[in-house]
């Protein structure tokens, strides 16, 4: 029971994943679900950096692009296996994210947002102009598919599995000393310093880890589509994953996933592609104004009440010193 309480989010994610895997049969929706799943993974990375560490990153899509290109280059130019690609797709974004964070984290959080925006622009220019390695405007095609997840349905299972693993890791992290340090420094940097938290190192590590999550999503993307181009994982995706995290509730572990599902399904119903940005931007502003903690923030009190009704809570035992007085 204790295990379940500590891992409620992973358990819920696993349950939802199994339900989805059993219920989804339509090939069109399976394709949609794979794409939403990959976006949910990038949104989870926003949840870690923005929701837990308070660092707004506008470069999560470029981190995913770096992951996708890393595995693409290993696969196309060197004929390497997807697993070697996975190592590259995790390490390269993590290193870059860590170094960037290390550089700017001493400053106020706003500076981090700006630095990530600059980094996004740099990554985009490098991808477009480094023809011999990234394929320039043409992109990289012929990335080898995964032998053990060949059909879209199998790939969908793989994406679900990766999401559940990432959520379990994420949850473990939050329950650790590291996670508590992260939450303290988001609320009050001075307090965290006074508690002996190495602020720069902890924030940078969290940022690097979040970049690694995005890199894994890029790896999944590259091997699913078997192509990466310069326009695929760009600025519009960076804003939409931030939006997903904020809509679902960035500080909740499952918030970004909920946001990704809601937004992903809504986007399929939007008529004009050009108006996507208006929809994203408008929704972002609206949600910041009316429901800062996102959908899960709205649902939490109801959920807690329902839970109390079902599971009787043990009576609170007063601590010893309280009893004496």
């Amino acid at each position: 029971m204790k295990q379940l309480r500590n891992h409620a989010n992973s358990a819920a994610a696993l349950l939802i994943a199994v339900l989805f895997a059993l219920l989804l049969r339509d090939p069109v929706w399976i394709d949609v679900a794979v794409v939403i799943g990959i976006q949910a993974l990038i949104a989870l990375s926003v949840g870690l950096s923005f929701g837990q560490a308070g660092l707004l990153s506008l470069a999560q899509a470029p981190f995913a692009a770096i992951g996708a290109y890393a595995t693409g280059i290993i696969s196309v130019h060197y004929g390497g296996s997807p697993l070697a690609g996975l190592a590259g797709a995790i390490m390269l974004p993590a290193l870059l994210g860590y170094l960037l964070a290390r550089l700017v984290i001493r400053l106020e959080p706003l500076a981090v947002a700006l630095a990530t925006l600059s980094l996004a622009a740099i990554v985009e220019v490098v991808i477009r102009s480094w023809d011999s390695v990234t394929g320039g405007y043409v992109g990289l095609s012929g990335i080898s598919p995964l032998a053990w997840a060949a059909s879209p349905r199998e790939y969908f299972w793989l994406v679900l599995l990766v999401i559940v693993i990432v959520i379990a890791l994420y949850e473990n992290l939050l329950a650790s000393r590291f996670g508590r340090a992260l939450n303290t420094l988001r609320h009050d940097r001075a307090r965290a310093m006074a508690d002996g938290v190495p602020v720069v190192a902890v924030s940078s590590a969290a940022f690097g880890l979040s970049a690694a999550f995005a890199g894994v999503a890029g790896w999944l993307y590259a091997h699913y589509v078997s192509y990466v181009g310069p326009g695929d994982l760009g600025t519009h995706l960076s804003i939409s994953v931030v939006l997903m995290a904020v809509i679902g509730g960035a500080s909740y572990v499952l918030g970004p996933v909920v946001g990704a599902i809601v937004l992903g399904v809504l986007m399929r119903m939007l008529p004009a592609q050009e108006l996507q940005g208006l929809f994203y931007g408008g929704t972002l502003i609206l949600i910041l104004l009316v429901a800062r903690d996102g959908l899960l923030g709205i649902a939490e009190p109801w959920f807690a009440r329902a839970l109390r009704a079902i599971v009787p809570q043990p009576a609170r035992v007063a601590p010893e010193d309280e009893r004496r007085t």
């Binding site: 706003l110 050009e274 208006l278 104004l289």
Partner: peptide
């Protein structure tokens, strides 16, 4: 201040989209 910056980012994306459309 991050929330204000984030909403201005949203506005920037929305305006870009209006111009494109």
């Amino acid at each position: 201040t991050i929330m204000i910056a984030l909403s201005s980012f949203g506005l920037a994306v929305a305006i870009g989209s209006i111009v494109l459309a």
